[in-house]
């Protein structure tokens, strides 16, 4: 089956799941209420899934490695630290904490700023090494985690419970207002990443060949780093941390579609992301009856897949 046909099948699957998610159990009486709940949630799932998939795929291209995602750079931990810090400094009833818009803007800004600072820092060094940059990010992540766990010790139990609820954000309590705020950002970033696809194909030939073919590798790396940082930061703030999700969908797409071209693979991983998130959500609700969360499930699946990739020696 050619790739175009496979993409169509994936598209059909996604549409089917979308319809099922929206329409299941809908009656003439309840439709208004259900739709007002379901549509923002669906939108959040689709946008976050597509953004994470795109960002992870292009990130793997610039790092020349299939088992990395920008999520490992400590975004999750920074998000948690930001939330804890806000509550501790301004109180749990402050506008900065309660107002979803302000809170969201602060959280994403801090994550993107962190990525930009890391990147600037890396770019001013004589010996550039993207893997070192990632590891530095990871170490910072552990540092953030320690700081936030200490800060949460200083809180009283009720405040702590409130923060905790914010940290385990999932698709069940996506904030409707936020979805509409995020949509233009995530759609914009995904489109920008997609538009870079011809140059990204050339980058698969290694840096020197890409330079010889007229790709400005430094500039492209910079663009992708910033764009994927924004995508991951917004998605994390919207639906909570799913570290291994990007790894899972990009590699599934590679296994399913033969073409090396980013045009095909980016569409493929986006569709796979939508399918697997919707299916995963259904499994969490119906098979596990909420005994687990989507992020735990995907970290488990994605993590096992990561180990499988390592054992198969597919690490480039």
């Amino acid at each position: 089956m050619p790739d175009s046909a496979r993409l169509l099948v994936l598209l059909a699957f996604s549409l089917g799941l979308v319809i099922l998610t929206v329409a299941l159990g809908l009656t003439a009486d309840n439709y208004a209420y259900f739709l007002s709940k379901r549509i923002p949630r669906l939108l959040a799932i689709i946008l976050a899934g597509v953004a994470i998939a795109q960002a992870s795929f292009v990130f793997q291209t610039i790092t020349q490695n299939r088992i990395l995602t920008p999520s490992i750079m400590g975004f999750d931990a920074l998000y948690v630290t930001t939330q804890v810090l806000l509550v501790l400094m301004f109180g749990s009833l402050s506008h900065l904490v309660v107002n979803p818009y302000i809170n969201f803007v602060i959280a994403t800004t801090s994550m993107v700023a962190f990525a930009v600072i890391l990147y600037r820092f890396y770019f001013n060094r004589p010996h550039r090494n993207l893997i070192t940059l990632l590891l530095v990010g990871l170490v910072f992540g552990q540092l953030f985690a320690s700081i936030s766990s200490f800060l949460s010790l200083l809180m009283d139990p009720t405040t702590f419970a409130m923060v905790q609820a914010k940290l385990f954000a999932s698709f069940n309590n996506v904030q409707t207002d936020l979805v509409y705020l995020c949509s233009p950002v995530l759609i914009g970033v995904s489109l920008l990443l997609f538009r870079l696809h011809p140059s990204l194909d050339v980058l698969l030939l290694d840096q020197d060949n890409a330079t010889s073919l007229g790709v400005d590798v430094a500039k492209l790396t910079h663009q992708i780093f910033i764009l994927s940082a924004i995508a991951i930061a917004v998605a994390t703030a919207l639906v909570g941390p799913i570290m291994f999700f990007g790894l899972l969908v990009t590699n599934l797409s590679r296994a399913l579609l033969q073409s090396y071209q980013h045009k095909v693979q980016l569409q493929g991983s986006a569709l796979i992301a939508i399918c697997s998130l919707l299916a995963g959500q259904w499994i969490v609700e119906n098979v596990f009856t909420f005994a687990t969360t989507l992020s735990v499930l995907f970290n488990l699946l994605g993590g096992s897949y990561f180990i499988y990739l390592l054992i198969r020696n597919r690490v480039a």
């Binding site: 299939r66 698969l204 330079t211 010889s212 073919l213 007229g214 400005d216």
Partner: peptide, 25 residues
């Protein structure tokens, strides 16, 4: 750099990629 690529081509040694390409690709 894009314009220069139409004047100058360079091939370094030891080219091996993570991705599989056909000769035509």
């Amino acid at each position: 750099t894009g314009q220069l690529a139409k004047r100058l081509a360079v091939l370094r040694q030891a080219n091996s990629f993570a991705m599989r390409f056909t000769v035509q690709e």
